[in-house]
Design a protein around this nucleic acid. Structure first.
Lengths: 139, 139
DNA sequence: CACTGATCGTCAGTAAGACTGATGATTAGG
DNA sequence: CCTAATCATCAGTCTTACTGACGATCAGTG
């Protein structure tokens, strides 16, 4: 067995993420959304309405990617687009009632999936890993 | 600022990995390989020669993906393919002298990139994160 | 007011990465 | 032998996310 210290961080991240995706994907599947879409719903919930650009920046994804995401979510009736009252270049994107329902159920499903994912760790380790990852992600 | 505890693990993994890739990619670029190719060189070094299937399983990547990887590495003169003496269905893949050089320099470059990546953490945290990630990746 | 530069959303095209399914060559077991 | 399994390969596909261009709109300047 290869000692832990010899495994590359890239390998560890890739496969940890793969395992997490294997838990979250199926958990959301009955709701008809994927993890990326749920992330969009989450940021929209934080401060609604929001421009697509704002939402994209909050998630650090590309503006053109957000177009497709909002297209999909709008098609599923989870969000609505309307012209922004203050600036007609912008879309005011907001959650629909159905979108809020899916966000609530989806968040619970992700919470549970993360719980299973983190089961190999102790309470202290879970807290530390989350904190450390946050700092590593921010740089 | 969003509190740490509210950020999804999926988000944290994605962006931590993105930052790591931003360090390792440029570090390997002068050597003419990417991180995935260096990973293949690493497993080949552990036990050479190796069939493509073995190498693929060691890295948990698809057999068809490995074909393209070995194609690329062979094209760069870093590995060689020859018929396996014991089983002519297999390729015996092994590092060339040049491949060993690139592996050595690439490993050093990755070590340094990981050091920079982990700089936001304390010594204890670095050790714990690596250990925890290993368990999370394995399930 | 007219003009310039920037911003927002959109779309077409593209590229990377990794998969599925089929195929030919080879091996192992009965 | 014959059948089933294994290995490498290839073509095709799918996902994800990007670049670059566009029209519409806004803000600031003179």
């Amino acid at each position: 067995m290869t000692p832990v210290s010899r495994r590359r961080l890239g390998y560890l991240f890739k496969h940890a993420q793969s395992r997490l995706a294997g838990l979250t994907g199926p958990a959301l599947e009955p709701l008809g959304v994927d993890t990326r879409e749920l992330a969009v719903l989450t940021v929209l919930d934080a401060r609604t309405p929001m421009s697509q650009q704002q939402a994209a920046q909050a998630l650090r994804i590309d503006r053109t990617t957000m177009v497709a995401m909002v297209d999909a979510l709008e098609g599923k009736g989870l969000v609505s687009r309307r012209p922004h009252p203050d600036d007609r270049r912008k879309n005011a994107v907001e959650l629909t009632a159905h979108g809020r329902d899916v966000l609530r159920d989806g968040s619970a499903a992700i919470d549970e999936a993360e719980r299973v994912f983190l089961a190999p760790l102790s309470e202290d380790e879970r807290r530390l890993v989350r904190d450390a990852l946050d700092r590593l992600a921010s740089g």
